[in-house]
Each structure stands twice: as structure tokens, then as C-alpha cells.
Amino acid sequence: MTYDLLIGDRSYSSWSLRGWLLFAAFDLPVRVHMNEMYCSSFISTLEDWAPARTVPVARAQDGAQWSDTIAIAEGLAERHPEAGLWPDDPKARALARSLVAEMHCGFSALREACPMNLRVKWENFVPSDGVRADLSRLDRVWSAARGIAGDGPWLFGVYSAADAFFAPVAMRIAGYGLPVSDLVQTYVDAHLNHDLLQIWRAEGEARNRTLTNYDMGLPTSPFPMAKPH
């Protein structure tokens, strides 16, 4: 079965990145459709994916549709249990689902102050107390995951849906040069070296579309990610 996935701009849409990784990282076939953000056609394009109101949206050939990344994750896990979206171990699986839920509704200070932008790295960014508190929370929950993980660079050893959900957070940490612990930085580096993320960013760069809505008014340097091999 090949799915259809509607996404926003790769360089900026953190939720689209999560949705795409839920297919790409688990070898699930998908046709990707672009809906450029802050464009007059954005709303009219979504009309073909009703009742969705934003991206990403995924649709199966049988007409089933999921319009939220948690819904996409659970829908795919239900249809493809062999794909391994969630850890096999029950304790790890429970924590993975808990972390995904917290990511979905939490870390508001970090997300508001540091919108994902894969085109540049912002220099001289000063994190607020709220952002620092979110970084401290990330250290705690990622440490908890690593505490029950097997070998491997990801939260639960083998890549899971939890890593897809936290990929844009890792990109924020890298893109704003945020102060983090060695454990957090090691996990961020795993994402920066992830071939799929490198492909995603390269495809965004190829469109060469800059959204001024994301301009922080700070000096910039190149985003710290290598080109895909």
C-alpha cells in the first residue's frame, strides 16, 4: 500500500518533518505532496484533504486519513506492526508514547522562541528562562529513555516514533546553538548525522524558499548539517 502525505515547507515545517519521518524511517511507501506555507493556495489545497486544517495529512488508498502526527503514528503502527514504530519492550513502549504525548503538547517556550529553520544557524541567541527550563526537561526525559535503551544512538536504542517526534527539537537545538548537556548534544548529533534528515534538508534547500516570518534578526552562519552522501 502506498500512502499520500501532504506537507508544508521542508525548511520550516517541524510537524511535516515528523510526519514524513514516520514513513521514511520505517520504509513505508509514500507519495509526498507539497503545500507551501504562507501562500494564497494553502487553504484551498487543504480543501481536498478535508476536514484537515493544517499539515501534515496522510491518506491511505482505502480512504482512511490522519490529520495529526500522533494519529499518523498510531495509524501506521496499527496497520504495520512489523515496521517497529514503537519499541518492542512494554516498558520502553510506554515511555516512548508518553514522551511523544509530552512533545505534542509541551515545550511551548522552546517551540515559540525557536521555530525550526533549517536554512541557517542563528548566532548570539540568548535563551529565556522558559527555554532553559524546557532544555532541562529534555535532558531529564531523554536520560530516562536512554536509561532503558539498548545499544544504539536513538532514545530507545533502535529508531522509533519517539525519535521522529523529537527530530525537530534536535534541529532547534542545533540551529540556535542552545546550551545543553553532553547527553543531549550526543543525541542532537545523531539527528544531524541521520541520512534521512540530511535528505529532507537538502530537498528544502533545493527549493531555495526563504520565509521572512522566521527571521530572528540575528547574525547567521551555515546550518550545522552535512550534505547527504
Rank of each mutant, 00 (worst) to 15 (best):
M116F: 08
A94K: 05
A109L: 03
D129R: 12
F107D: 02
E112F: 13
G150T: 14
R79Q: 14
R172E: 05
F165E: 02
V126D: 12
V131F: 04
W142V: 03
R97G: 02
R146F: 12
A94F: 09
G150P: 06
D134K: 01
E82L: 10
M116I: 10
D89G: 14
L110Q: 10
A83C: 12
W142T: 06
V141S: 13
Q185T: 01
P168E: 06
V180H: 01
D139S: 11
L138Y: 03
D182E: 15
K91N: 08
A94S: 12
A101L: 12
S128T: 15
P115H: 07
D139V: 00
P179F: 07
H80S: 09
W154E: 03
L95P: 01
R93I: 00
Q185E: 10
W86D: 01
L135W: 03
R146E: 14
D88A: 15
E112P: 00
G84E: 05
L178N: 01
H80L: 13
W122L: 05
G147H: 07
A83G: 09
W122H: 14
H104I: 07
M103K: 08
V131P: 05
A144W: 07
V141Q: 13
K91Q: 14
G157L: 12
A167N: 06
N117S: 04
Y159F: 15
H104Y: 08
A144P: 00
D89T: 08
L155K: 12
R132T: 10
W154S: 03
D129A: 15
G157M: 08
S143I: 05
L183Q: 13
L85W: 07
N124M: 08
A113I: 02
A133T: 14
G152P: 02
V120D: 11
H104F: 07
G150K: 11
P168F: 11
P87R: 09
A162E: 07
V100D: 03
R119W: 00
D163A: 07
E123G: 03
F156A: 04
R97D: 04
D134P: 04
D129H: 09
A161V: 04
K121P: 00
A164F: 08
A113C: 05
D151R: 11
W154I: 05
P127R: 09
L135Y: 02
L95T: 04
F166E: 02
R111T: 10
L110Y: 08
R140V: 13
S181P: 01
V180F: 00
R93L: 00
V169A: 08
